[in-house]
């Protein structure tokens, strides 16, 4: 049984970390981009961003004034039990979100879409989102918070098998060029692409590809991994950099996630996880241990399984 108080306390710490500390993998990616950027203005922007991350950590203040829309991804081992059950868990995550909004402070971004009611705590109808995943074996809970920002950089399109890879590249470029102008996508970004599924799952896959994988991580399917690299290079060859200025840093990494789709379609979604790629993760165990990390490690073999039944892969298969 995992303590509900420990879950809430850990969740509050994660809210704070996500808002303030840029994850190492993204920071390294941005430093590499800054090292080769030769556009005068783009280069200035990247340098300012690197200084900004330092200032945020030193002052313990949010790295960006738009602190995004906080949400939760929760993953549990098959044997996990939570004190108070799932209702207590959701209450703890809503409390942590509200407390941290006031505590850090975060911007109270969440309002009613029609009445613009603002509870000043980032909690409301459907907010924060809480999504779940499960893994075979183990008694632990992974709490992952993502504070994705901005209103720009996301799009969906129904493509068809006949559109092929060239159609995928076209929509990828269209999204980057359209949202990259004037820097609306807050690039350079981690670009997540969802392929297949149904419209809603396609969006979910793309968003998770952007927010739940780290810079440098490649899809376990070698051909998809190759396409990820190709799209990253394509994005960085547009000639556009930070803020839409002339430059070459548009994409820090590209991640693709796929889901089986209708036989006639090839749904595609594009998501940009911005210069403030806010995510923080902790694993909480029944014995009271808490391990913090920045890699959500969401897309395990189990999450990408294709078969009806699931059998734990042997060590040999896993390393192959």
């Amino acid at each position: 049984m995992i303590s509900i108080d420990l879950i809430q306390k850990t969740a509050e710490t994660l809210m704070d970390k996500a808002a303030i500390e840029i994850p190492e993998d993204y920071l390294d990616g941005l430093k590499s981009a800054a090292a080769v950027e030769d556009g005068d203005l783009s280069s200035f922007v990247l340098q300012a961003m690197l200084e900004n991350y330092e200032a945020a950590k030193e002052d313990r203040r949010a790295m960006c004034g738009d602190t995004g829309t906080p949400r939760w991804y929760v993953k549990m081992g098959n044997e996990t039990q939570i004190e108070g059950g799932p209702i207590a868990l959701e209450t703890a995550l809503r409390r942590a979100t509200a407390n941290a909004t006031n505590g850090v402070p975060l911007r109270p971004n969440r309002v009613h879409p029609l009445w613009r009611t603002d509870h000043d705590n980032n909690v409301g109808i459907g907010a924060p989102e809480i999504e779940y995943g499960y893994e075979p074996g183990g008694e632990w809970i992974d709490l992952i918070t993502v504070h994705k920002g901005g209103l720009f950089g996301t799009d969906y399109r129904m493509l068809f098998p006949s559109d092929g890879i060239q159609g995928i590249k076209r929509f990828f470029l269209d999204s980057l060029v359209a949202f990259g102008k004037r820097g609306l996508a807050c690039q350079p970004a981690i670009i997540g692409i969802g392929l297949g599924g149904c419209k809603d799952t396609c969006m979910v896959l793309g968003k998770r590809a952007a927010c739940l994988r780290t810079v440098g991580d490649r899809n376990s399917d070698p051909k998809i991994a190759k396409l990820e690299m190709e799209l990253k290079e394509l994005g960085n060859s547009i000639g556009m950099g930070a803020m839409g200025f002339v430059g070459k840093s548009m994409v820090i990494d590209t991640h693709i996630e796929v889901g089986y789709c209708h036989t006639g379609g090839m749904q595609m979604s594009v998501h940009a996880f911005c210069l403030s790629s806010r995510r923080a993760v902790a694993r909480v165990y029944a014995d009271g241990r808490v391990e913090y990390r920045t890699d959500p490690d969401w897309f395990t073999d189990y999450q990408r399984r294709e078969t009806v039944e699931w059998e734990m892969p042997t060590d040999h298969e896993r390393s192959a």
Partner: peptide, 25 residues
């Protein structure tokens, strides 16, 4: 400023788009 930059970037775009094709629908 942004229009100036967009104009410069646009000059290169046809090369980047080479080989891609507009969506069927």
């Amino acid at each position: 400023l942004f229009e100036r930059e967009n104009e410069r970037i646009s000059a290169n775009l046809h090369k980047v788009y080479e080989g891609t094709k507009p969506a069927t629908l």
